[in-house]
Simulated assay, not measured.
Amino acid sequence: MTKNKTSLDNLKFGAIHLDVLKEIANIGAANSATALSHLVRKRIEMRLPSVKIAGINEAVEEIGGPERVVVQLLLQIKGDIQGSLFFLLSVDDTKTLLGCLLDESSIEIESLKFLQSELVRSALCEIGNILCGAYLTALADLTTLHLYPSLPAVCIDMLGATVTSGLLEKGYQMESVLIIETTLQEQAHSSVMKGSFLLIPDNRSIQPLFQALGVPLHE
């Protein structure tokens, strides 16, 4: 019996599709940088070194391997399409970003218990709303789809565990991920932070997503 399913892997995925996704990523990056700059009252620039499609396991390897410890900001996407959007930062880069936001020269996060601080969690949730929300807004604007993000969840764990648990608990059928590698730079102190967005649409959302973008898919 043949399975009737749609994923990014079993589509004839060409340069035009990746160009559309890159355009969404670029708009989202510009919106994110502007909103984050207003929040921290410092000039933040965001660049996109790469945008690519990969299987979930390959994506985990691409951004550091399953045992890499990361700080994860996760939003669930509801509405006309469903899925998950992650933003992942190393512990050191999280410290730098929190320093920009909280205007403190040193944030004590040597221990993995630093997320117990309500101030830190609130700051990271606000960053998650801005960064992930900007990408979803760009996607919604270009597609006219109705998208409803959840409140961001924050955790710190090994990359393999945190991505897997974030997907399994919602029961989505997901096999592929859009990896958006990004660099944030705070201009005043030349602070550079490298992060990764993972946009993981539910398989059932692939077709309506690209149809809304006006890009044909040929299975």
Rank of each mutant, 00 (worst) to 15 (best):
S32Q: 06
S165D: 11
A59M: 03
H146S: 15
A212S: 15
Q116T: 12
N203E: 13
L8E: 00
G14S: 11
D92K: 13
K170Y: 14
A59I: 07
I127P: 06
G166F: 01
K113V: 04
L147I: 15
T144M: 13
V70C: 08
A138M: 06
S150W: 05
I109T: 06
Q82D: 06
G83A: 03
L75S: 09
A30L: 12
L168F: 04
F87G: 03
E58I: 08
K95A: 15
S191H: 05
A30M: 09
G28W: 03
A54S: 14
T182F: 04
Q76Y: 12
L167E: 02
I130Q: 07
T2D: 10
F87M: 13
L217S: 04
Q185M: 13
S191W: 05
L147F: 09
C125G: 10
L178P: 02
V91L: 04
K52S: 14
E61R: 09
M46N: 02
Q185L: 12
A59G: 03
Q116R: 14
A54P: 02
Q187E: 13
F210K: 02
I130C: 09
L184W: 04
T182C: 10
I130N: 07
P152A: 05
T144R: 10
S122A: 11
C155Y: 06
S165C: 05
I156S: 12
A15M: 06
D92I: 11
S105G: 15
S150C: 09
R121W: 04
P49V: 11
D80V: 13
F114T: 08
K95T: 08
Y148G: 07
H17V: 04
I77C: 05
Q72S: 14
K194I: 09
A59P: 07
A59Q: 05
A123R: 10
Q173H: 15
I63N: 03
L102I: 03
I200C: 11
K194V: 11
K22P: 00
Y148F: 12
E169H: 11
L136S: 03
I27N: 06
N26Y: 10
I200P: 00
S50I: 04
P208C: 06
L167Q: 02
Y172H: 15
Q76F: 08
E110R: 13
T137P: 00
A134V: 03
I109L: 13
Q211W: 00
